[in-house]
Nucleic acid binder design. Sequence first.
DNA 1: TTGAAAGCGTTACCAG
DNA 2: CTGGTAACGCTTTCAA
Lengths: 337, 337
Amino acid sequence: MSELKPPSFVSAQMVADRAGVSRSAVSRTFTEGASVSEATRRKVMEAANALGYHVNHLARGLRERSNIVCLVVADMTTPIRARMVDILTRKLQASGKITMVINTETDTESVSAALRQTLNYRADATVVLSGTPPASLIETCIANGQQVVLINRDERLQGSSNLGVDNAMAGREALYLLRRAGCQRLGLITSNAGTASLVEREEVFVQAARDAGLNVTVTQAGPTSYQSGQEAARRVFGRSASPDGVFCVTDLLALGFMDVARQEFGLKVPDDLCVIGFDDIEQASWSSYQLTTFRQPLDPMADEVVDLLLQPERAVSERRLIEPIPIWRRSVRPASA
Amino acid sequence: MSELKPPSFVSAQMVADRAGVSRSAVSRTFTEGASVSEATRRKVMEAANALGYHVNHLARGLRERSNIVCLVVADMTTPIRARMVDILTRKLQASGKITMVINTETDTESVSAALRQTLNYRADATVVLSGTPPASLIETCIANGQQVVLINRDERLQGSSNLGVDNAMAGREALYLLRRAGCQRLGLITSNAGTASLVEREEVFVQAARDAGLNVTVTQAGPTSYQSGQEAARRVFGRSASPDGVFCVTDLLALGFMDVARQEFGLKVPDDLCVIGFDDIEQASWSSYQLTTFRQPLDPMADEVVDLLLQPERAVSERRLIEPIPIWRRSVRPASA
DNA sequence: TTGAAAGCGTTACCAG
DNA sequence: CTGGTAACGCTTTCAA
């Protein structure tokens, strides 16, 4: 496999030879704010274009920062995750970084391998979107001078930056909306992923309900997907005391749940059943759903990440919580009848 | 911005010092199939672990191939594109490559910048998923010894590998299914993106219909999105002679189209209206839609890409066409009444 | 099996 | 403003 010849790229030396100058001159021509005479610059540019020269960032990264940022992510096909990756790669690019995407499973072993790649490629920073990275490796990253940003993860490791949405707020607000709608029997739908964010949304919702003297039926079905939402609905409506108001910890769960509730159990949303989701994926706004949900403010989050990377001294601050934005649509009744 | 100190990574020299061996020994320890005595290997490994050493792939890439593959992609949030990126990053990783994702707009200028990055980072290969790369730059990539793989693009450039789904087949089959269902007035819904793939699906469908003596109303509304599908439906059903069978060149268009047709115009699918899509995104299988469509066989396509990259001699072969897989669901009547 | 040395392509530093 | 030189971290060749 590695008997393959390396591609033959054009080097600064070749450009220098052709232009009849030193390689220093070539380097300076391509260095922001270095002093080169207009004459040599022109000669160099001409030679460079003719040869198809491009500065080798790998070699440059040997002495200075590589400008590489590693994005460690799992479940990339999930709409919310796809949007995160999209926005982050965009903003990172705009600030002069290049993104290496490492697509992992959520298990620790897989994430470890990803972090090792991060170190192998001398990434300036690592941004972890999913999975549970082992503390020891994170520490290695930090010890090597990398910046580490953990998004929506629970682990708060010395030296890493943490950033996430305020799940507690969503849990409380969801309860408020369902109660205001006059829901009597509350349900919470979650997956078996056990992610910190999902668990927090669940616990806050359940606790807030308990504080209000209400009971919540918690249903947990498979991974975080549309299908699990469907499955949950079948379990929940296939027995007595089924809920008339549910908080699904994820939009994907909510959409599957709604579809089965309406199509297989003939329920009307929001008349017979109120549903609230979380994330505000694009599909939540589709006219078949019109799901009331909480938007993860991806844009501000990405801005924050870029900011953190540009100003490393801010990095070790405590966890930044960003408020989700309630998106009012049609899946919850405005007030109790 | 670049006054930032580079991260301080552990080097082979440091490991060598600590282990009391030469840096050559360290290098050999981490090189597949080099000869090191068990004793030194152990000493090296010990020191390496203690220090948190990781081979610098950037430095390695100076002499050999970088193992970096650049993925140039636009519209990453689109379900089909997200899946492509997901599958490709996975398979590339599995074959020992690392993926740099360059998120572009579809315009040529933006793609050019992306390709330049590709060269800057000495990627072994560039895979273009969307946008229209300028021929001259592609040539530069190839001249520098890079492999270039164009997916679902039309441009067939000397030295690049081309790979795509058989759009013509989908166009013909879509027509067949609609005619078999007894549809009398045919419609084709597309976007204004003007991508080669979309245009081909449209043209083949329209031509096939013409050959059968049928006329097709073509509607073009905005970018390739759910909203454009909605918009198209409003245009199409807001006037006389509206179709009873449509081929939407994309699932996203189809889903928006269906929603408006049913909710705003009270049409029953497939009784009053048959709809066919293309891509087989996850949402097409949701119970609210059950869309009959053509699946882009992403897995085989990604396999093919990896194959191409591993065996460069195959690269210059002619365009590889992969057949889309018809997915039969509920949005088309089985046969005319 | 081992270590010394050369070379990969850059950029920063120093003389001129 | 310019060219030479050192250094970055690695792998590979060559001698020992």
